[in-house]
Nucleic acid binder design. Structure first.
Lengths: 141, 141
DNA sequence: TTAGATGCAAATAGTTTGCATTTGT
DNA sequence: ACAAATGCAAACTATTTGCATCTAA
């Protein structure tokens, strides 16, 4: 069972958590889908890969990953289940088309300065952020 | 039943939706709590005020308000139910303490320039945004 | 070897739906 | 008057829990 580990898997192990089949499979599914999935989607994909893995373990993995800030639950469409987004380096931002629900990623958010400013003004210690813009994408406007 | 209407209630009526007791109560609850509530909290508060109002109507109201962009479901703690945040004037930002879940509002977000830039680069039409910072508040750090 | 994780199945939330009845306009 | 909205209760979906068993380190 010794393939090379993804950086996130290494992080898991380094934090002292066991690299179990369930966890690695969930992580793998998330990574191969770019980290934009509802729990239901994750459940389905995991089931396709290895139907021995139980639902509860998938939820437990999602929970663990959230606590470790590997992913973060968020709302993308107006549905009722969270969409888990991967947090590459602790922050995440995207544009959501309010018409077709398409998600458009973008890179620079230029929030570093604001972050520093807020930390000083409000005496807080910030570790990450989520920035969502809403509007109409090129196809819908 | 003629009290003065909040701007949001007026907006409801102007859009052609009926100002029913259920909707006004849900709106009222949201407004008097600063618009940071889970569905469960809203259900509870509404029930305290008027136990005649059914759960379904509360969900229907939350749904309607979301479609009208009066509120927006989002994830604040790692729990499983969405937290509805009010969208005053189309944008909203806050800091969430990952330890005690306290929500700290702040005003300026300086995102106007980024917004314009993205609109041009990606050919989108943006109407609002949500910015959440995560970290430790002054009491918890 | 053994604490930590798992899978299962049953229990709990949380949310939606169909429908007869009520209500705002 | 009447389309729109409601309350109810039942159906559904999503998530969590207890516990005996298994497994990575």
């Amino acid at each position: 069972m010794s393939e090379e580990l993804s950086p996130r898997a290494q992080r898991l192990r380094d934090t002292g958590y066991k690299l179990t089949n369930a966890r690695l499979t969930v992580l793998n599914v998330l990574e191969s889908h770019g980290g934009h999935m509802t729990s239901t989607q994750v459940l389905d994909e995991v089931d396709k890969i290895d139907s021995e893995i139980g639902r509860a373990s998938v939820f437990r993995a999602l929970d663990l990953f959230t606590r470790l800030s590997i992913i973060r639950p968020t709302y993308i469409d107006s549905s009722t289940t969270p969409t888990y987004v991967m947090l590459p380096g602790g922050h995440h931002h995207h544009i959501i088309c309010t018409n077709c629900n398409r998600v458009i990623e973008f890179e620079d958010c230029h929030l570093g300065q604001l972050e520093t400013e807020l930390e000083r003004q409000l005496n807080v210690r910030l570790t990450g952020h989520l920035l969502e813009f809403y509007g109409l994408c090129d196809r819908c406007s």
